[in-house]
Nucleic acid binder design. Structure first.
Lengths: 227, 227
DNA sequence: TTCAAAAAAGCGAGCGCTCGTTTTATATCG
DNA sequence: CGATATAAAACGAGCGCTCGCTTTTTTGAA
């Protein structure tokens, strides 16, 4: 894992692939059986939902707006989900799914602590670069699903933080990092990673791409931890 | 400025004071003339709005919920604002107001770069500690006010980032910091500051208070920048 | 290969209801 | 009483969602 283009070859996170996963996970509620029909329509639905929600919020988006913008009728929409809440849950679930897929890949688990930390941060940046609107959506709308959504968000947050914390703790034990509080440092690296997708427009305007962002992050975190 | 308790003595950011400012700034729309009546009611309205919105979002919060929870009738509510959007704007405006008040205070402008950076970060943490729910609200709901809200948020974000960037640039010029990109470092300090209020519950659960958070932040950023 | 029957997918007006807002009525107090 | 503040009731627009119907696709015996 050394650059964004390598990452893109390793993981298929295209809209089609992601919506294919959604179709699998929600076979029970999606009434359209043929994948060749369902996947392209799901792509249209999800793309439009992300666009409208990330502009004004999920709740203000009416299903009539979604119908109009996506080109599917109200009736057609309701053969892909059985309630607006289910639509929200489909997207949140797919985000959690993708995090698990990408951040547990093998090469994050061995080798030099700084290299592992770099791999973890790079993976996070590349993942959120590919699925930007999904992550913005999850970040902003998790609470809209009430207690359950909040808990899902907190759990996912703590899981990622735990990956960072363990690598930092290993680095301290190995004498490669100075003796900081691993939990606090992990907790503070997380929001910097999140900034990449929350403030994506700002970085784009400044000409900072994913690889440049990772480079700065690794430099700063490296100096933060240097023994 | 050396601790949270000093900060609290220096700035009056009580609900009453903040709502007093709101009353001043919205004399045109608030129809209740007597401040002795208006301020306590505004406090109830704003407190309830922040509580309900930060749980489920501003848009999902109905004015009937707000009426019931705040103890004021629909009619009474509408003598304090002329639309739900105005209520949102009152809160956002007061947040911007408070940022300007606190972060431009004098002792942030002179002295050792690291001390100035510390003062700036400490002020930000203490401000957001005092006005936690206000900042969470502003962070999550700015986009609900459409283009205008988004631009207000971006402007405020860039202004704060600019304060950090200038101090870092001064530090580099003075040879006290290593030659990093001041804009990128400022951009990455900001989300760590924001994490204090966005994830406040997590830190509370871990027994990390504002002063401890500032200490960690200063330590990490100091090592990040050490020449 | 053909073509009607069956199955799948899509359509959109309309339902019940809740929303933000307005209007009307009542209470409080100098 | 008159002014001010609050409470209660009412309104129309727009919401999520449904359902009777149409269109498209697939099927399979001739």
């Amino acid at each position: 894992m050394d650059s964004y283009s390598t990452f893109q070859q390793e993981f298929d996170l295209s809209m089609a692939a992601l919506c294919g996963r959604i179709l699998e996970r929600h076979q029970a509620t999606i009434r359209v059986r043929k994948a060749d029909t369902a996947v392209p329509n799901l792509v249209r639905i999800i793309e439009t939902t992300l666009a409208l929600s990330n502009r004004n919020g999920f709740h203000p988006m009416s299903l009539r707006d979604l119908s109009e913008q996506s080109g599917l009728s109200m009736g057609a929409l309701y053969s892909y989900f059985d309630s607006k809440d289910t639509l929200l849950l489909m997207i949140l679930g797919q985000v959690v799914d993708a995090i698990g897929l990408v951040l547990t890949a093998p090469d994050v688990a061995t080798g030099d602590p700084l290299a592992r930390l770099r791999a973890l941060m790079a993976r996070h940046v590349y993942l959120t670069e590919t699925m930007g609107p999904w992550f913005v959506f999850a970040f902003m709308e998790a609470k809209a699903f009430g207690k359950q959504g909040r808990e899902m968000a907190v759990e996912s947050e703590l899981w990622t933080e735990g990956l960072l914390r363990d690598v930092i703790a290993d680095g301290i034990d190995a004498g490669r990092f100075r003796p900081v509080d691993p939990t606090m440092v992990a907790a503070l690296i997380k929001p910097m990673l999140q900034d990449w997708y929350v403030k994506r427009a700002k970085y784009r305007k400044r000409g900072v791409g994913p690889d440049a962002f990772v480079a700065v992050l690794v430099d700063l975190v490296g100096n933060m931890l240097r023994a």
